[in-house]
Design a protein around this nucleic acid. Structure first.
Lengths: 325, 325
DNA sequence: TTGTAGGCGTTATCAG
DNA sequence: CTGATAACGCCTACAA
């Protein structure tokens, strides 16, 4: 079934059908309705391949799916992907997946995807300092949005991000409000934008409260085991903390285990509000992932339709209170 | 850049370039090499839209992405998706994502996707008794594979599945081998194919060992809390079990918590070998998800290329021993 | 408003 | 083995 079938069925020219589809305002009211009826009656759908060949646009956006490194934090990308698929859907776009081992492979994939499928845009996650991917895409003038700030040059391209510092700040304030003073922070080594941001929220909030907590900061790789190890170390010092803010739920889960094993009561707050946190009653900072995905699509459609929108979106996370703090 | 650019560059006709791409064997050796060189030199990529218009094939397969219900088990689909994307990639196919609230919506989406993008095939996950989706697709003669058996009519369409019963059987045998006799099973209510299958493995293995364990079976919804509740109940009976096999890692995690809280030593084995299980040292049954994804793609390409392959694949899971059993 | 002509890049058909 | 030609379904002029 083609546009001609619809035209015949509605007693109009093919051109009119095309107009109803692409420029409804220039078609007379009743004609338009008649055509619309024919379209639904026949279940007609414009063939994207033909449309793309003519317009050069595919209504396809690509997102990379990463190997599950850490099962707990992996669900974050999962939820983002779900949100993205849904919002893209609503905006008339489809999401295409790809994988890549490293940045070079990923760039090669861009080339591939662009050449073969004429992708309209890319959504990148997990930006880092000096990201070569954004440079390549920008150089080719391929539309893209990142979920995560470009840590080097904030103005260089459209992005959506969550205010990580505000998240840990909220967590720290909550602990201060409930009487805690010795509040530790278990995070990642300096160098990752996200990790540094989460650290900053704790540090500045503690400083604002006039508390020197430099000795309560621990840096480690992510994971339950690492969290447990660090928390155990903190709890066995001369002046142990009474609470801890963690850069991830994995770390927090480990910390929680250390707290329980050593029998020392201490409040624990995680980050990402993963379903595991919900299951074990862990208080955690929740990222608005669905909203982030929606804003990404919004930014993208804005760029694709040539409408100027504010290209930088910083969303606020929310603290979800449960049993551990 | 089009096929004509390559043809000019290699001093041949457009048709010859097309032949090199689609039927290399009918082109003379040196000509083929010259064309190949031109292709790589120019970085040429066949335009899928044009190709699709001509051949009616898009080299696109669709997979549904589900909302994360349970964060722990959610990672299973995640890993499957990753494997699928990778293998599809290698076979020259791309993965397209879609969401749907229920079966009817999903079927409507099939219609959409098929009409607009001419999808080559679908991969369905989470099959259930009397699945309307497979019926619709079969009725339209759309190629598809399911990851999960069609529980009603095993022969009705190509599928790949993991032998769940064998997984719990392995777990149960391991516990028997290490001296356990009172081995409990915490699973889901009867009615789901996967759940019943996992229950069967435990039941038959116990029966084969001559042990009556009917009183040690508990059915509940999935989740850590449910697992903890059920295990706690089991442990406080007159004759508590010394070990438990769970239908999921979530349940097992809960059971583990109950074991630790009550101070009763008991072995625990989970199912799915999620990264969380790895993190906490939980012994678990591992599904070969990458292999499953690969077989799905294999089956699909077989169908699409008209090659007859065995359309039913049952993969064996493996028990991953850690600290809890 | 409607109809007609042309072309997007590819592949299939058919003659050389 | 190579070269010309038509066709896939759609959209954008342009003329009516």
């Amino acid at each position: 079934m083609t546009i001609a079938t619809v035209a015949r069925h509605a007693q109009v020219s093919r051109q009119t059908v095309s107009n109803v589809l692409n420029a409804p305002h220039i078609v007379r009211e009743d004609t338009r309705r008649r055509v619309q009826e024919a379209i639904t009656a026949l279940g007609y759908r414009a063939n994207q391949a033909a449309r793309q060949m003519r317009t050069g646009r595919s209504r396809l956006i690509a997102v990379r799916i990463e190997p599950t490194r850490d099962g707990i934090n992996g669900s974050v990308l999962d939820r983002f992907l779900h949100g993205l698929t849904e919002t893209a859907d609503a905006a008339g776009y489809r999401v295409m997946l790809y994988t890549a081992g490293d940045d070079n492979q990923e760039i090669a994939t861009y080339d591939d995807l662009l050449g073969a499928y004429d992708l309209d845009a890319f959504v990148l996650t997990g930006t880092k300092h000096g990201d070569p991917r954004t440079a390549w895409l920008a150089g080719r003038e391929v539309p893209f949005v990142t979920f995560g700030r470009p840590w080097d040059a904030p103005e260089s391209h459209p992005w959506v991000d969550v205010d990580n510092a505000d998240g840990t700040a909220q967590a720290t304030r909550r602990l201060l409000d409930t009487g805690h003073r010795r509040i530790a922070f278990i995070g990642w080594p300096t160098g990752s934008g996200v990790g540094d941001d989460r650290h900053t929220g704790w540090r500045t909030t503690m400083a604002a409260a006039g508390i020197d907590a430099a000795d309560l900061r621990r840096s480690t790789e992510d994971g339950i085991a690492a969290g447990e190890r660090e928390m155990r170390a903190l709890l066995t010092t001369a002046e142990p903390p009474t609470a801890v803010v963690c850069a991830s739920d994995s770390l927090a889960l480990g910390a929680l285990q250390a707290v329980r094993d050593t029998g020392t009561p201490a409040a624990v707050i995680g980050f990402d509000d993963t379903p595991v946190a919900a299951a074990v009653g862990l208080t955690s900072v929740s990222q608005p992932l669905a909203a982030a995905a929606a804003r990404c699509v919004e930014l993208l459609t804005g760029v694709l339709d040539g409408q100027p929108t504010n290209p930088h979106v910083l969303l606020q996370p929310a603290l979800v209170l449960r049993h551990t703090a």
